[in-house]
Design a protein around this nucleic acid. Structure first.
Lengths: 195, 195
DNA sequence: CTTCGAATGTAAGCGGTGATAACAATGTAG
DNA sequence: CTACATTGTTATCACCGCTTACATTCGAAG
């Protein structure tokens, strides 16, 4: 029954999976390395081999979240539809991710990663914005978006998305309000970008 | 030397002050009730008389933050200037607050206050949005803002502000980038509201 | 003024935590 | 086969939030 092998074999991945579960349904801060170790069936000190510190575990989680969100937003932009359609898709993907990974998204944008976070993590938001940048460039090329430096234009977009979700999670919105606000924000953004 | 009175006299306020200091320059999570007690020169269990739990202390901090921000935004709208001017003032006040109270703002919008937070705290974001709502109503009355339900229209505004600040804090912006993005966001919002 | 209850602080201790150091088992490259 | 690197274990430290039982002080009613 208890002849578990001395080496777990895949502890790092297991820890990440378990951590994300706990994050999802009990929030960050409820996350304990010792508990993860227990759940994984290893000793309390074992996780330190893979994550020198608890913050490192959180950083890894956040980084993975950025990658998943960025990739989701990228793949949804495959076709060459109108700017309005792309914007709509982008927004709904973002909000969808936020709905299903609320705590993770919060972790991703929490200011805990300062000031000396792993460089990849520090660069992750930038890569997210690059997706928005591409959409805007496309729109400009089609004449559907007014001219201007794309990297600056992209800020209000991501900001609106991020703000909308944190507002939705904390502002005490009903789902219907959230949906209306979502539509409103899309239309709002569209107007803001109009030539 | 050590004939401190048995009763501190103003422990609750002292704790809040110390807590906000720690919050400001060491971030949340670094905040320890025991340490606060030490700094206040009081026994480790003393704070529990004023804040039954650590979360209660954080909630009080967040609530105070909401009140300060709301009041700051309200007072800056005294005159009856144009919508553009009011929007500008509102935005700069918000961002100014964010700059000076980064960790506090994060705390205010952190999803830790769920699902059974003190009702006043749950209502605080709503009151913040009410300020934005008033500005929008004014704008509509002047014909400077397009028609529509104000409570829905206000969402993109606050969302953009909140998103902009969290992006600024975590997105690795330089101050100049932040300023440009701020201007861009104001202009963006103005366009979005245009009739 | 005295008394007595409420408010506030203290002392002690519980279970839990993250981190580290010293040691043991396993995998792997030469 | 052997030496080394990796991964897990054991033991321990300092700290934490919280609770219970007790001490002191304050303030108001008699």
């Amino acid at each position: 029954m208890k002849d578990r092998p001395y080496h777990h074999g895949d502890l790092r991945a297991t820890l990440l999976t378990l951590a994300e579960e706990t994050l999802r349904d009990r929030g960050p801060g409820e996350l304990s390395l010792r508990e993860l170790a227990r759940d994984a069936g290893v000793s309390p000190a074992a996780p330190s081999r893979h994550f020198k510190t608890k913050q490192a575990l959180l950083d890894a989680l956040a980084l993975d979240g950025f990658e998943r969100l960025t990739s989701a937003m990228t793949t949804v932009l495959a076709g060459d539809e109108s700017f309005a359609a792309q914007l709509d898709a982008l927004t709904r993907t973002y909000v969808g991710f936020a709905r299903e990974n609320a705590a993770l998204l919060e972790l991703m944008f929490a200011r805990k990663h300062d000031p000396d976070a792993p460089p990849e993590l520090a660069a992750a938001p930038k890569r997210l914005m690059d997706v928005a940048t591409r959409v805007i460039e496309d729109g400009q090329r089609r004449g559907e978006v007014r001219q201007g430096p794309v990297d600056v234009l992209a800020v209000p977009l991501i900001a609106a998305l991020q703000g909308l979700t944190t507002l939705a999670l904390n502002g005490g919105f009903s789902p219907e309000q959230m949906d209306r606000s979502l539509d409103e924000t899309i239309g709002f953004t569209l107007r803001g970008f109009r030539p």
